[in-house]
Amino acid sequence: MIIKDKVIKYGSNVDTDVIIPARYLNTTKEEELAAHCFEDLDVDFKNKAKSGRIIVADDNFGCGSSREHAPIAIKASGIKLIIAKTFARIFFRNSINIGLPVIASPEAVENTSQGDELEVDLDRGIIKNITTGEVFKVNPVPGFIREIISSGGYINYTKKKL
């Protein structure tokens, strides 16, 4: 799977309360969640997401609550991929479980700026910054997790196994 898109860049410790504030958690509807995504962090997110569909962030992305509504809101906003230096544990597995690709690469984050264009080959673990010409390699995901992603999420994976 290859993802080619522009970058929206954020800092460290982006928590799930700013990704989707709790006041909107009285629903599970994707489009409603997407409507409020990042509204306490970046009022311009919806505009940016029209032309940039890769989020790049520093450390501990998605820290805080276990709400799966957070990666759902991001995915439903049209975001195709998140690259961060590190991810909070629950957010990381939630993203995998719903089929939103996440890559940890401090190197790629250091060398990517707001608005850069990236081309990412998920299967081979290659991140290419088209704007700067730089290329970064990441560790391939463990087989078991790759199986979850290629099944289209943890539910489909489980269905196949049962």
Binding site: G64, S65, S66, R67, E68, I90, R93, N94, N97, I98, G153, Y154, I155, T158
Partner: peptide, 27 residues
Amino acid sequence: IGADSHTCTYGALGAASTGMGSTDAAV
């Protein structure tokens, strides 16, 4: 496991307890 991040509370009893998401809870 709990679909709530503060599920780690029960570790106080000598348990291994952790928060996960809704899909993990579903499975």
